[in-house]
Amino acid sequence: MLELRKLSQWYGDHAVLSDLTLKVPDGELLCVVGPSGCGKSTLLRTIAGLLPAAEGEVTIDGTPVTGVPDGLAVVFQDYGRSLFPWLSVRENVALPLRRRGLPRAERRAEAERILDRVGLSGAARRHPWQLSGGMQQRVAIARALVCRPSLLLMDEPFGSLDAQTREDLEDLLLQVHRNDDTTIVFVTHDIDESVYLGDRVIALSPGPGSRVVLDLPVRLPGERDQIGTRGLPEFVELRAEVGRTVRTPADPSGLSGPPGA
């Protein structure tokens, strides 16, 4: 169980997150939506232990997060800069296994296995810059999955991909989620995506001082598919509800930015 208790973050004297309280049960795929600049990335960096909490605390199974917690993996939006271009695809994917003290041959075998799973078995010896954007993000996902993380954080991972690739990777993620029962916190600005992927969607108010303004369980069938699910009346309804919340500034003082900005 991941828990955030009255979490606040500041950037100078500018509040990024204020009094954020949230519980994510094990195995849940939680989508976090909100306009850009609402502190979604700050939230993820705090959970990842990359940024100490200014106020409040983050706990995982009751233990406060002070550094990068055990069993954590992160997928960033900018795959080009998150992968190491001087290493081959396989070497990139095998990187997290170094902490497990596996011999080199086993690290390679594990990396090949996970590459096979994300549909990249042919690309193991190539270098990231030789691959398309979608393939590079698959490499980043493989690198995140190779250690069988118990908590996976994803920061707008499909934001810069074309629609087709994006749908493929969304389905890949759902499949991984079903098989491994990993807890996933998935940050996105795409409302459709959040409803399609999530077991639950929360929306953050526009900054400064973002709070949770919507906490919505997604009651859609577990088996989802791109065409069918998106056509369900429940889907359309949920999407509309999230959309209304995100687009209406929750802050009546008018300090918030324009909708969707």
């Binding site: 960096r45 992160v74 960033f76 998150s82 990187l95």
Partner: peptide, 20 residues
């Protein structure tokens, strides 16, 4: 961003030096 990646992957000092 790669520094963040190295932190998340918990690369040690020597690995950071040689790999990053």
């Amino acid at each position: 961003l790669r520094l963040d990646v190295a932190a998340v992957l918990r690369l040690n000092a020597a690995e950071r030096l040689w790999l990053l």
